[in-house]
Nucleic acid binder design. Sequence first.
DNA 1: GATTCAAATGTAAGCGCTTACACTGCGGTC
DNA 2: GACCGCAGTGTAAGCGCTTACATTTGAATC
Lengths: 353, 353
Amino acid sequence: MLPSGPHARVENWIPNLPSVPTLDDVARSAGVSTATVSRCLNSPERVVEHTRKRVMAAVEQLGYTPNFGARVMAAKRTFTIGAIIPTMENAIFARGLQAFQEALHARGYTLLVASSAYQPKIEEEQIRSLVARGADGLLLIGHDRDPAVYAYLRARSIPVLSAWVYLPDCDQPTVGFDNRASMRALAQKVIDFGHRSIAMISGITEGNDRAAARLAGLRDALGENGLDPDAVPVIETPYEIENGAIAFQTLMQRDMAPSVVMCGNDVLAVGALRGARELGLSVPQDVSITGFDDIELARIVEPQITTVHVPHREMGRRAAEALIDIVEKRNSGASVELQSTVRMRGSLRDLSV
Amino acid sequence: MLPSGPHARVENWIPNLPSVPTLDDVARSAGVSTATVSRCLNSPERVVEHTRKRVMAAVEQLGYTPNFGARVMAAKRTFTIGAIIPTMENAIFARGLQAFQEALHARGYTLLVASSAYQPKIEEEQIRSLVARGADGLLLIGHDRDPAVYAYLRARSIPVLSAWVYLPDCDQPTVGFDNRASMRALAQKVIDFGHRSIAMISGITEGNDRAAARLAGLRDALGENGLDPDAVPVIETPYEIENGAIAFQTLMQRDMAPSVVMCGNDVLAVGALRGARELGLSVPQDVSITGFDDIELARIVEPQITTVHVPHREMGRRAAEALIDIVEKRNSGASVELQSTVRMRGSLRDLSV
DNA sequence: GATTCAAATGTAAGCGCTTACACTGCGGTC
DNA sequence: GACCGCAGTGTAAGCGCTTACATTTGAATC
């Protein structure tokens, strides 16, 4: 090699050669050709045991690790999947991404991560960046984005999967749940409990189809129960606890204070709860609050929050599997629907009893 | 597929040519050599304007994007940084990683993520995987690991940065805070408040120098105040809310129930709080609880938790900057110490009044 | 013992890019 | 007018790997 290996001292003579072992070094050391070494690594069954053992020993002894760039060039595959999420700071994405990464790893893939801070412009830039890096496939959150993005990806034959939404009729595969139906189901419970004066604190719906679907789900339920879908007071605000508190107080100080404030996610709901506490209102006696997502927070506050449970970990895992299946051409990508379930807890009062 | 995407029909004509333009195509189209095109892209000032414009037009017109793998091979740089964290599910890592990624992106780097689930074996495997993928540098959490790992990295000249710890005497750069001193400071407050019967719920210390340092910090404070450092009851348990609750109950049911239970992090503290509630004990009247990290959870529970505030976001950002500086050889990597601060809140009772 | 044909292994051609080095041509200089 | 230096450009050698194809090996068959 310039002898390499764990005990190589070469760099003492030639300062600029840290002498990382290459396939060639392994081949020489094991007394075989590079092709055989490559086969040992990529399709071991094609090499007879006796040789394979010798090669593996050399690999071990030299501390050889294949060079990624070279491998990519020769094989046209990176075994890398890119994911772009709004932010890791929201527990639902952190959890989903964690599961996604674990599943990827189990299948021999590595995760490239970027975040968009909920901004379409940044997201597009990140998509290009991950594609340029050779991501074999891409995980995106939601599906509502500029068609040009999908065209770009299609032109480069990069499979994309949208998660956190379930859109059976969409031409891209999705892995998620029906945000709209989930919120409708929760709202139905709320209405069943006798609530008629309902307000909502929603996430920003522009460019966020999940938030928009949840709001739509509430309106669906209202309409189905003879209530006016357009009369519901809605405040849109970014997903931050503090914003939930502020929005809650704004809603409660209107002429007709609602009997329940439904929130676009648990973070906002926890904020609303804090807002209620600050106003001296007790939950659920004076006002009810609901959330969405069922993150840990929802069960930690007092009272615990009635919310919609979403299997985030499973979503991450299934997304990884579905995406790899497409990348490896095992199928063309059917969407996967996961079930969400309403979790009744203390923050919602039953007015009908 | 080959070409995927619903509208790709190309494979009907020329099965193996999805025809992604290469440097060569651009060169031919612009009537220059590949070297000139490459220079236009990498060091434009070395090409005369007239030529450059022609080349850029060709790039634009063909929709050329450089091939990452090839570039890596030839240039030996990936502009990719790898990070291996225990898990994204802990808010402190999610937050730090988010900031890390943002800072990386601002400098033109992309983040490769892997997680170890607190298991050294998995971590080592992930390190190899990220190195193989050509990460220009690596972010690791804590510094306590097999020397062979550092030898491996050194042999490959991969810069490593340890975060979440501050070790000025270490031969690797670190960006973090002094876990031991931080816990000592908190324990001192606890002792100042008149507590003498102290117990601790610690994270698993094996292979986790942060957890070990926190425990050591408590012992330091005890020793300095004439209390027996070895008499303190300690339960080690993984960082999960449920475990905190269980450990808390175990501690309280001993002969000498402590007046305060100090926890290795806020997650355990929240669990302890729940454990107290289940036992019918009120905090801080019957027993005090402290945490560590100051995650959102700590301010959401009732009472709010006395804890040590750690600037996770800043840590992520500074780590990114320091690591890139090393990668780009702007310096050889001085450690950065961040300040943690004790946050006094309702969960700790002052017995001295 | 000669022949056959898998199985095992080797040979070598790229993959698309960067960059050291070679070349070209032009405006000074002597 | 021969020579120099230099900016601008071209030539071509790899980078480390995978893989199509060529070659060797050896067990099985006749």
